[in-house]
């Protein structure tokens, strides 16, 4: 072995980190002027790093030979306390390229349009429902008011009453009622029908058909003004009513 071979051996020891400081300085000075030794060092350095790398294999999670999570937490606590704040927009720019933003905007616009159409349709439907309910409510209110008036008229002490079989005809001002309280059920397929005779008229005008309830009670509001009528009558008629009486009247009440 010549002197230079000995130097190459020293280069290997230096690369391993096992050379005393003074000898290491001499080797560095020599490598600076010796390409062969410098190349040898470059060739051996990765092998030394490989020796270091072999120690990683000693850290086996199966036998617990790994640093604890607390170690990482301690380190990262210090690091995060000193870290530069990250601009919030930088990440979002990275995650949302322009085409994705455009696609998202288009989807949102389409969704908004569909939603708007649905809402308009719902709104239109709701308005129709409100209108229908308002109309229904008005009708119910009108009916309820008529019922209240009818009850008041029937109970009124100053109403004019015309007794008939099983009930009475009640006149209160221009309003006229047929009020039955023990009226028998008509034969099967038949109904009761009211009739009116206008003043000066020769023929009866057909009025509403009706049926008593199980207790024999029936109340009919005669639509015409009592002031214009000469008489009111009730007869038994086929279901659906008749245009002129087909049977002898149950009763006829003359109002004049």
């Amino acid at each position: 072995m010549n002197a230079h071979d000995e130097l190459l051996d020293l280069v290997a020891v230096y690369a391993l980190g096992a050379l005393p400081a003074q000898d290491a300085a001499h080797v560095r000075e020599h490598m600076a002027i010796c390409p062969e030794c410098s190349r040898e060092y470059a060739r051996l350095q990765p092998a030394v790093d490989a020796v270091a790398r072999s120690a990683e294999a000693c850290t086996d999670p199966r036998n617990g030979a790994v640093p604890s999570e607390l170690l990482k937490a301690r380190i990262m606590k210090t690091v995060r306390a000193e870290a530069a704040p990250r601009p919030a927009s930088a990440k979002s720019r990275t995650l949302w390229p322009a085409y994705a933003v455009a696609a998202a905007a288009m989807l949102i616009a389409m969704f908004a349009t569909v939603l708007s159409m649905m809402m308009q349709s719902d709104l239109r439907q709701s308005r129709e429902e409100v209108s229908s309910l308002t109309h229904q409510l008005a009708g119910e209110k009108k009916y309820e008011a008529a019922q209240r008036i009818m009850i008041a008229d029937l109970m009124s002490t100053d109403a004019k009453r015309y007794p008939v079989s099983d009930g009475e005809v009640v006149r209160k001002g221009e309003r006229l009622y047929i009020a039955m309280h023990t009226m028998p059920m008509p034969p099967k397929g038949r109904v009761y029908q009211s009739w009116t005779l206008a003043a000066g008229a020769k023929a009866m005008t057909p009025g509403p058909t009706f049926m008593p309830d199980k207790a024999g009670i029936a109340i009919v509001h005669v639509p015409q003004s009592a002031a214009t009528l000469a008489a009111v009558a009730v007869s038994v008629e086929p279901e659906g009513g008749s245009k002129s009486p087909t049977s002898k009247p149950e009763f006829v009440v003359k109002l004049i």
């Binding site: 000693c58 850290t59 640093p67």
Partner: peptide, 29 residues
């Protein structure tokens, strides 16, 4: 540039190597 996330990435990649060398030298966890 003081990027904590980048540092954490380095830690995750190299902490076993660092710990392994230290443990091999010191034989003390």
């Amino acid at each position: 540039e003081r990027d904590a996330a980048a540092f954490e990435g380095l830690y995750d990649a190299y902490h076993r190597l660092v710990y392994g060398i230290a443990l091999r030298v010191l034989a003390d966890t």
